[in-house]
Design a protein around this nucleic acid. Structure first.
Lengths: 204, 204, 204, 204
DNA sequence: CATGAATGAGCCTTCATTCAT
DNA sequence: CATGAATGAAGGCTCATTCAT
């Protein structure tokens, strides 16, 4: 029987280290982007030594994919509360839009890192599998929101999950870019856009 | 009298050279992306020497911005024919959707380069001005399509140019990624999605 | 007979061009020093084209030597007035010290260029002849001051021209360095030092 | 118990490496001067690889400043023996003059490197602090000689440390230049000049 | 004569990766 | 296991010099 105080297996420790390393690396990666973040810089900004990175990750690609996967794994639950707490379609839309705006403000570096990675995957074959997987979980996440919205509204979604995700992601990306460029009003615009878009996603 | 074949001014030659250099560079850039395409590689894949790149461009950023601007300057007229030739709203949508699919097939490397550049601009301040400008011209381009579509349909657009562009760009990006990942049916899907989305862009 | 309006010979024009080019180059050279001043930069900061430099000068060394020679040729007469106008030994010393201070303020870039060149000559064989020649003319210049001073004082110099030049140049160089480093009081110090040193140069 | 042969700390090893690297670099630097000595060449002329130079030094400036500082740190004790062993003023002067001549012969490359660096500092702001510091230690060194000389002679110095250093440095520099130019008699001249100059540095 | 386009060697620096300790 | 020293390829960029026009 495994008790709470049982000695962790080496494999556990290995995984834990990877997680901690990735957590730390995400800060640097989000700040500099994939190409500009050197492994040395990543190690320097962490509590780990330079060599340990290659001990726990095969190479830079391996590290970044792990990092983004780990980050997106938490992302995927960002709207769980929104979905769970919603009682009216309007309320859900409002909470969802607020959450979108909030995450742009709070986690802009993480989001731009994701878009960076997705862009790189268009060039780098070896990134594609991970990117496609992550994109799918994001699509699922969005679809949970849209599905709940449809239910609460008593209507049917008018589009596939893929389209719903594509549309919202396009809007989100534009807003993120605008936010990073210090453009005025992009966050309020995003909120308003989501309010107007959501009803359109449902069949009349 | 100055004929069309009159001696070109030195400034003209200089511009012409930049254009030729950029044309050539776009091939390598589209193949490798911004970070992986070294100026040496770009020069090697062209008829120019290594030094000439620095003779005509101040630095790598200058080159890539010029390249993408030049490419996007032609992009911007891609749908001019679609708009000019359209006689019915359905015809315009069909032609527009076809053109979107066509450019994914024909110019995928250029499109991923653009998304790469836009992602990098989220990290690199110095890219932002150019990216914002280009994004604006693309938005205008899309708006000419939507505006004409509304006119032919005798209805009003239901959203701002910015939103229309954001939505379509989101779809386009997903399709491009799917295409590059050899996913089945993404092109047909894109076509279908556009057919379904366009009416939604108009007020009832 | 050669009139004032006679056509200049090609050789004259050639020399004139060299002079003009050198005059212009001195500005850039004095600003950046030998190693950092590129021929392109020198040409850009002049009214001449890039290629013309190699037309009138064999290479960079040739140019800089010509430049410094030309500058030092005028330097050499800097104290002519001091010498000619002096009526008392004290007056000469005062005027000489003032002139030394003045030239540090007015022509610091030229002086540091000279010291740069002289340092480089310690490494670069091909500079030595020119440097030695210029040093000799400077020594002669200093000696004219010291000689006149001795005459006015009715005493004999107590040291060779070489030593007199070495001592004064050492002081001057320290003052120049201090001046360029924005050290306080270096100019007044130099003046005072010269006042105290000059009598020492004469036999009791 | 920690013995003298105890394991050196990593920091010690790091410093030791820097010292060894600098020692090696000084050879190339003294041969070619600052501008002409590339880091590649410096590495090639050492037992170290190219990359290691950048591992231990931040950049080229960092390296050269460290090198010259290290060299001058030993310089500064060159006349300690002269000062310690002197029993008569004449004896001190003779030993001092001999030592000056000796170091020109033995370490001309190092000395010209110093003058190169000092000249460059007139152009390059970032060198000034180090140059000023080194100059000060040299001034102190000279002053220890002059002070002892005054004591032995039972007289007072007639000038400030700064002036004494300036004068002697001027002479030394001329002698170094002459020596490097293979001029005849410069070393004997220097010796004689120092013999004549030293008494002048003292008040009557 | 004069221009400035073109060359290509070479410079400083960065970096992922390897490996002895 | 972990460290950080070491490597060497590669990158962006500068520049003196050459040469066709």
């Amino acid at each position: 029987m495994t008790t709470a105080t049982a000695r962790r297996t080496p494999a556990d420790k290995h995984d834990e280290r990877r997680r901690a390393l990735a957590d730390s690396a995400l800060r640097t990666l989000g700040e500099l982007g994939y190409a500009r973040a050197s492994l040395r810089e990543i190690a320097n900004n962490s509590e780990f030594s330079h060599g340990v990175v290659h001990y726990y990750f095969h190479d830079k690609l391996d590290l970044i994919v792990y990092c983004v996967r780990q980050y997106k794994a938490t992302c995927v639950h960002r709207y769980d509360g929104v979905v769970a707490d919603a009682t009216t379609p309007e309320g859900l839309v409002a909470a969802f839009a607020d959450k979108l705006v909030e995450t742009i403000v709070d986690e802009a570096p993480m989001h731009r890192l994701w878009y960076d990675l997705r862009s790189q995957s268009m060039f780098e074959e070896s990134l594609r599998e991970a990117v496609l997987q992550i994109d799918q979980t994001l699509e699922d996440m969005i679809w949970r929101v849209v599905g709940t919205y449809a239910e609460l509204a008593g209507r049917e979604p008018a589009m596939t999950p893929h389209v719903a995700y594509g549309l919202l992601d396009g809007l989100f990306q534009q807003a993120l870019l605008g936010y990073l460029c210090d453009l005025e009003g992009v966050l309020d615009d995003l909120r308003a856009q989501v309010h107007r878009l959501m009803p359109v996603l449902l069949a009349p």
